[in-house]
Design a protein around this nucleic acid. Structure first.
Lengths: 180, 180
DNA sequence: GCCATGATGCTAACACTGTAAACATTCCTG
DNA sequence: CAGGAATGTTTACAGTGTTAGCATCATGGC
C-alpha cells in the first residue's frame, strides 16, 4: 500500500510501522512536528494536514487531540513561549542576575526572535488570542518605564540585524520587559 | 440566470445589470468591498473570493487588478493606513496643533483602532510586509523618547477600553508616534 | 481468560480556498 | 472600421479545515 503521493518522511514511516495503530503520544508529537515545520522556514502556510503528514498520521487524527486548527496553533505558541522563557531564564542565571542578568535575558529574547522568526511571529500572532493567563500576566506588569527598560532597548538595538526597524526594536523591548 | 446560491448583495447585482460586462473601476471597487467586509466583523477569514462576490464579479477577475491575494491585502492595508492618517491629521488640525494636537492625534489613532479592529489588525499584520516606503518612514523616525511620547501614552491609556493590556498601549503609542 | 467499551486512528466526503488556462466581450487606437 | 489590448467569464485543479462513520487497539470487570 501507500502507493499514492502522500509520502511521509522516512523516520515517521518507520515509526508508523513500529507502532502499529496507536501512536504513543500524539498531541505531544504533533506540537513537536509543528515546531520542526516552523523551523524549516515554511512560514505562515503551516497547515493542519502538513503537521499530520509530518507526524505520519492521517489529518483527522489531529482532532482527537485538538478541537481545531486554532487549538493546535495555540499549543504551538504556548510551547514556543515556554522555550523562550526557558532561554531567558537560563541566560539570566548564567549572567548572575541583576542588571547584567536582565541584559542577558533581553539578548536571549532577541536571539530567539532572530534565530526562529517563523516561530516568533507565530507566537506573537497567537498569544493575544491564546489562553488568558499569559495575557493577564503581561497586563499585570507595572506601568513604570525605568532605566532598565532603556538599557534593554539599547542592548536589543545593538544585537538586532541592521535591517530591523526602530519600531520593531521598541516592540521587542516591550515584550521582553513584560516577559521579565 | 444567476439561479445558483452565489447571491451577491442587491446593490452590486443591480450594478452588474447596469454595467453589462466591464466594471468602471474594479480594483478601486475591490478595495472598497474589502473594506466593507472588514467592517462587518468577518475577521481574518477575508477571502479573495468573498470580496469578488461582494463586488458582484467572478473570483478570477481580481487577478486583472492584483497579482495575488497578498497584493489585494496590501492594497487594503494601504487604504486603511491612509484613512488612519487622514483621521489623525483632521484631529490634529481641529485641536489647533501643538501638544494638544498631538494628543488629539493619538486619541484619533486609538479611536480608529477600537472602532475598526479588523481593519486595524489587518493593517498591523500587513504593513510590515507592505511597500517599503512606509516602513522606511517609520524606521527613519528619530529614536528619542521625549515627554510628548509619555503624554501620548497617557492619553491612549485613558481612552483605551479597560481590557486593553499595558503592552498594547505601548505598541499603539509607538505606532502613533512614528506616524505623527 | 474473555470480551465490552472507550480511546484513538482511518477513509470518504463536503464546502471552501487560491490560482492557472482558455475563451468571451468590450474598449480604444490606428 | 479592423484588430489588438483590457477586462471578465467559465472551467478546472490542488490543497485546506472539518464532519461522519467505520476500524483497531488497550484495558478493566466478569
Amino acid at each position: 500500500m501507500a502507493s499514492d503521493a502522500n509520502t511521509v518522511n522516512i523516520e515517521s514511516a518507520a515509526a508508523v510501522k513500529a507502532r502499529g495503530y496507536h501512536h504513543g503520544d500524539l498531541g505531544a508529537a504533533l506540537v513537536d512536528c509543528g515546531m520542526r515545520l516552523l523551523e524549516s522556514g515554511d512560514a505562515e502556510s503551516l497547515s493542519l494536514r502538513a503537521v499530520a503528514r509530518e507526524a505520519g498520521v492521517s489529518a483527522t487524527a489531529v482532532y482527537r487531540h485538538f478541537a481545531d486548527k486554532a487549538a493546535l496553533l495555540r499549543a504551538l505558541a504556548r510551547e514556543g513561549l515556554d522555550q523562550l522563557a526557558q532561554n531567558q531564564r537560563n541566560a539570566m542565571m548564567h549572567a548572575g542576575g541583576g542588571a547584567a542578568g536582565l541584559d542577558a535575558s533581553g539578548a536571549a529574547y532577541v536571539r530567539f526572535a532572530v534565530a526562529r522568526p517563523q516561530l516568533f511571529r507565530m507566537i506573537m500572532s497567537n498569544i493575544a488570542v491564546a489562553n488568558g493567563d499569559v495575557i493577564d500576566q503581561t497586563a499585570a506588569a507595572p506601568e513604570r518605564v525605568s532605566g532598565a527598560m532603556r538599557q534593554l532597548r539599547d542592548a536589543i538595538a545593538a544585537l538586532a540585524p541592521p535591517g530591523t526597524s526602530a519600531e520593531e526594536v521598541r516592540i521587542i523591548a516591550a515584550r521582553s520587559w513584560a516577559q521579565a
